[in-house]
């Protein structure tokens, strides 16, 4: 059976949007799936917003572009306005509850709100907000396993040292725990 899923990550530059995508793609690769990572590039990249599309599939990927993504991780309000309408019916939208002040109007998609900045703040590293979100995404969707994500992050940040890794692992787990409690 063909299973092909597309996830869009979008937000301000600096929110670690592209890194989330990279972590998901790397995790998929470690689970021997076909993956493609496609960043939006060009003028818009320099304008302060960033987005990327991750395709994970059990067969070769035809197009890495997502016209209608299954999942959307939206880290700020402009991203919600831009991508809400594109998510596939029955898809899931992940919102950064701390920064997004609008709610999607559609009733055919599920909305998961995660206060990623607050959770990261409590962990003592505000910059790990994106790790909280990737934990939430993976826990909810099962795109890859949580342990693969933790291992992939460890590998990607190999040069950063043990402390960073521990914070990242904590952030991923807390993001997952939040979703399991509030949006099972």
């Amino acid at each position: 059976m063909m299973t092909i899923t597309k996830t869009i990550f979008s937000g301000f530059g600096g929110q670690g949007v592209l890194m989330m995508g990279y972590v998901l793609a790397t995790s998929g690769m470690h689970e021997d799936k076909h993956v493609a990572y496609l960043p939006a590039y060009g003028a818009e990249v320099r304008g302060g917003t960033a987005n990327c599309t991750i395709t994970i599939s059990n067969e070769p990927i035809a197009s890495p572009v997502a016209s209608f993504p299954d999942f959307a991780v939206l880290m700020n309000t402009p991203s919600v306005l831009r991508f809400e309408g594109k998510v596939k019916a029955g898809g899931v939208v992940f919102l950064n509850k701390d920064l997004v002040d609008v709610m999607p109007k559609r009733s055919d998609i599920e909305v998961v709100q995660v206060p990623v900045n607050s959770i990261a703040q409590n962990l003592g590293n505000p910059r790990s907000a994106n790790m909280v979100m990737i934990g939430a995404l993976v826990a909810k969707t099962g795109l890859v396993s949580l342990s693969t994500v933790v291992e992939s992050v460890k590998e990607i940040f190999a040069t950063k040292g043990l402390k960073v890794h521990e914070i990242n692992a904590q952030a991923i787990k807390q993001g997952a725990a939040f979703v399991q409690k509030n949006n099972p």
Binding site: Y22, A25, M29, V35, A36, Y37, L38, P39, Y41, I61, P64, V65
Partner: peptide, 10 residues
């Protein structure tokens, strides 16, 4: 093209 140049694959 830009797509193949930007895309990441293993």
């Amino acid at each position: 093209d830009g797509l193949i140049g930007q895309m990441m694959e293993p």
